[in-house]
Design a protein around this nucleic acid. Structure first.
Length: 287
DNA sequence: CTCAGCTCCTGCGGGC
DNA sequence: TGCCCGCAGGAGCTGA
């Protein structure tokens, strides 16, 4: 569920609680998530100051003042909940007491500023690891990830080169994090609709013009979703400090059987299964 | 190298 | 009302 825009929104929401702040105590309530936590993770976090919070693909990276970075992945069901932060950082927000610890609260960061950041992940597909900051780009989880879709190195020429000769459906190619970072099932469906490209189309059989349309569609789709997340952070009085979940309106995702949103299009949104996942598309608008 | 299928995990919703 | 089943999906892994 959390794809690049949601992770970016979570990162932005965590800034007032974490950036520039020191971790008074890290509390691990189990030994790991998808993988075991690294040795002595609690001790390596305790007392560290978060210098910078960054995002790479769907990962949040917290650079610590000890030369290490905390790598966070939300997986499918991971959530961050902020509590206890009173102060001027975000007026009107995050003024609440610490709620009781809940089931699936796996990691708690007790900050010196009084904030508590709780990582909750029922399905435990999420991950946390520690890595020397200078070695991050060689970390196994990050080493083979493709370019950021909103960055300068993601463009039609690059994408055409990576798709060339590939017979796999464009849907599967865009989900491949080695080709482009940060896309998941939802935004791939949305970007393909916006580009007018069928999810079944062979990746290597897209014209240059359509690849250009696709890169534009990917960027626009992500930018709009990030903007929607940002305004949800600004406007919504968060009752419980939970970050990253906000109302989205999707054009095709989850709309099986509903009318296509294209003005004048008589068709309805279809759902097919590709490599075990649902693809939503309009057979008239996407070819 | 490419690609399809399997797997981890829990909560939720549909069907009976 | 309660139970069972299937589904959701990020991404590493395996095997063809």
């Amino acid at each position: 569920m959390p794809e690049l825009p949601e992770v970016e929104t979570v990162r932005a929401g965590l800034l007032p609680a974490l950036e520039g702040q020191r971790i008074a105590r890290a509390e691990l309530r189990r030994d790991g998530l998808r993988w075991p936590f690294p040795p002595d993770m609690a001790a390596r976090l305790t007392g560290a100051r978060v210098e910078q919070l960054r995002r790479r693909s769907k990962y949040i990276l917290a650079d610590l003042d000890r030369g290490e970075s905390l790598i966070i992945h939300l997986g499918m069901s991971g959530r961050m909940v902020i509590s206890g932060l009173a102060g001027p950082a975000v007026p009107g927000q995050f003024h609440f007491d610490h709620p009781p610890v809940e089931k699936h609260d796996h990691v708690l960061l007790h900050m010196e500023n009084g904030a508590r950041v709780t990582f909750n992940d029922p399905r435990r597909f999420g991950a946390m690891d520690l890595c020397a900051t200078q070695d991050l780009e060689r970390h196994p989880l990050l080493a083979s990830i493709g370019p950021e879709p909103l960055g300068n190195s993601f463009h039609a020429t690059y994408l055409a080169d990576r798709l060339s000769g590939r017979k796999t459906p464009i849907k599967a190619a865009l989900l491949d994090q080695r080709i482009v970072a940060g896309l998941g099932n939802i935004y791939v469906c949305e970007a393909l609709f916006r580009a007018g490209i069928s999810p079944k189309r062979a990746a290597g059989r897209l014209s240059r013009a359509r690849i250009e349309r696709l890169t534009d569609a990917i960027r626009t789709t992500l930018r709009e979703a990030i903007e929607a997340g940002g305004s949800s952070l600004r406007d919504y009085r968060q009752a419980n400090g939970e970050l990253g979940y906000f109302q989205h309106s999707f054009r095709v995702y989850g709309r099986e059987g509903a009318p296509c949103v294209t003005p004048g299009c008589p068709n309805t949104v279809r759902r097919i299964v590709q490599s075990g996942r649902s693809s939503f598309y309009c057979p008239t608008c996407q070819r």
